[in-house]
Design a protein around this nucleic acid. Structure first.
Lengths: 336, 336
DNA sequence: GCAAGCTTTGCACACGCTTGCAAACAAGCG
DNA sequence: CGCTTGTTTGCAAGCGTGTGCAAAGCTTGC
């Protein structure tokens, strides 16, 4: 197989009998080409299998069409759902998604952003971790847009999208109270991210305000296994809680499974459970988890919309978006 | 904020007091630079916040470092797990992943490949759908490598990675037989992909060979909901199967949930269930699903390994890899 | 028929980088 | 010291594209 390089605009031009600028303009929306030459060009391009070289194009224009998605734990239900929405909407907006995995190590996000710069990405969307302020400034200085999702940074410049975590924590307390629960518990990961802590603080605040007993445990990462461990901790106590709010649906699934299958507890009769995210599994028959829904579609829409506003124009003052997580009722909290 | 363009190698060169070539060579592994000038260059680069422009670099070199992942239904547990492995290993190999979502519409994969060409990707990995032969040839002709995962095409050129689906179907029959099951069922999606059909054919073949009763239903897409519908179909029959092999873990979860919660069937006492993929949920306490494990790590390793063999050298004859899916035993099939 | 206005087209430069080539330089050897 | 060999370094020619500028072509109105 001869690794003959790609067809260039020059070859198309020669075959079509026009100048190279003509073929360039043919593939540039809004450029001035007569219908006749356009036809000649597209025909030749078709015949030769010509495809514009976006790398070269990105070299000339200041934008590449690339948007970096910086994320850890891609395989997690909530993360992958958000990924689906983002990539889909980005494609519809004519952008292309570059996926960068981070781990939880230090500097991981910084390395990702550095890659975004090397590929001259138009924007970076950060779903996990928090980058160093200096590299954030570097990105912004070069016209790269930044979106922080659920990251709660207050540096000006990036668009910040956050949920009403604190209020959700409060709201679920009243739901538990209405179900007649007296002894509340919050099962958290010890990752300590602002979203998780916001939910916790709202929950504890509302519980004490209502005069309800409340206790908190934190363990591991926000996954199923951690939920089981947390159940172990809460359910081997002398006095068990009768309502537990898990910081994450995955935690909730693990917690519920342990409660039912290892401790023989009946949910929601003996214990009410709620989660956060509304991952697909929350709706499965085995769980029927009452939970707060992350508005992933809306998050993605807001993000991509902000990226698509006119470049040359005003920086439209939007700096921060706050969305509310709706509580979707299923069967893990008993009726009042 | 002044959209002052990115720092170029020229500016670094001027500040360092060397030629532009020197800074280029400093960032090109294996190029000839003295330790002294390298130091001057890296210092200047650091001070100025210089980052190599990979777009321009990809214009010169014949490879861009970009690898396209073409996939539909990213948010699915198996798909996202594979995605995690692939992106991780690609990054370790110094490549960068470009994610392209496809839907199930016609030409969707072709459009994705066309984008891969426009960005001069070094390779494309296709996890969903099957591209048109003509565009495959176009990719290959231009030195773009292609990997088809579980797609079962026989065009020469791409690397094809497949599982022993047929054999898995056979193996699970003997497991069912050993558990004393008499009436077998296969719950499939009607997507009709080669992997799914392979599992079905292997299952049916082995069952009839063993003289066991066997019936097949196909419905919808390979998700949880389809599993519930399939359960409905099988379990409202006059004669219920006592063992069902689901083409996919998601189908199995839906099936099992419906069987237990809607039909009050006890698994595995009254009915044995097996799945395929070994998604995370299969190991959750509520399911304990006995299933075949997709060797995602191995698939990713084989893929990235193949992409990393020396370009200039031989095309190393490898064209097709066949991996085996190990059966992982849990509790959804009763012991013999 | 001519001037004015608009559209189309080609030229040529720029984008930021890599790399072959040859000059410059350093070192080893008789 | 001269010759040879090996290492650095700068020059300049690209890579494939977009786009300003001016020339050319076409249309319109008088």
């Amino acid at each position: 197989m001869p690794p003959k390089d790609f067809i260039s605009a020059l070859e198309v031009a020669q075959r079509a009998g026009v100048s190279r600028s003509a073929v360039s303009r043919t593939f540039t929306p809004g450029a001035s080409v007569s219908a006749e030459t356009r036809k000649k060009v597209t025909d030749a391009a078709e015949a030769l299998g010509y495809h514009v070289n976006e790398l070269a194009r990105g070299l000339m224009r200041s934008h590449s069409g690339i948007v970096c998605l910086i994320v850890s734990d891609v395989a997690t239900p909530y993360r992958s759902a958000l990924l689906r929405e983002l990539t889909g909407k980005l494609q519809n907006a004519g952008k292309v998604a570059m996926l960068i995995n981070t781990d939880r190590s230090d500097g991981s996000v910084d390395r990702a952003l550095s890659q975004a710069i090397r590929y001259r990405a138009d924007a970076s969307i950060i779903l996990s971790g928090l980058p160093d302020a200096s590299i954030v400034r570097l990105c912004l200085r070069n016209g790269q847009r930044l979106v922080l999702i659920n990251r709660d940074d207050d540096e000006p410049g990036p668009l910040k999208i956050n949920l009403d975590d604190f209020e959700a924590g409060e709201r679920i307390v009243t739901a538990f109270a209405r179900a007649g629960c007296k002894s509340l518990a919050f099962a958290n990961s010890d990752a300590g991210t602002p979203s998780l802590m916001g939910r916790e603080r709202g929950f504890v605040a509302a519980a004490t305000r209502c005069g309800l007993e409340v206790s908190v445990e934190r363990y591991g990462w926000t996954g199923y296994e951690a939920g089981r461990v947390l159940a172990q901790r809460f359910l081997t106590r002398s006095r068990r809680p009768d309502a537990v709010f898990c910081a994450t649906d995955l935690l909730a699934c693990g917690f519920m499974d342990a409660a039912r299958h290892q401790f023989g507890i009946s949910v929601p009769d003996q214990m009410c459970i709620a989660g956060f995210d509304d991952i697909e599994q929350a709706s499965w028959l085995s769980y029927g988890l009452t939970t707060f829904a992350q508005p992933v579609a809306e998050i993605a829409a807001k993000t991509v919309g902000w990226l698509s506003v006119d470049d040359n124009g005003n920086d439209n003052g939007l700096q921060s978006v706050r969305l509310t997580a709706e509580l979707v009722w299923r069967t893990s909290i008993r009726a009042a």
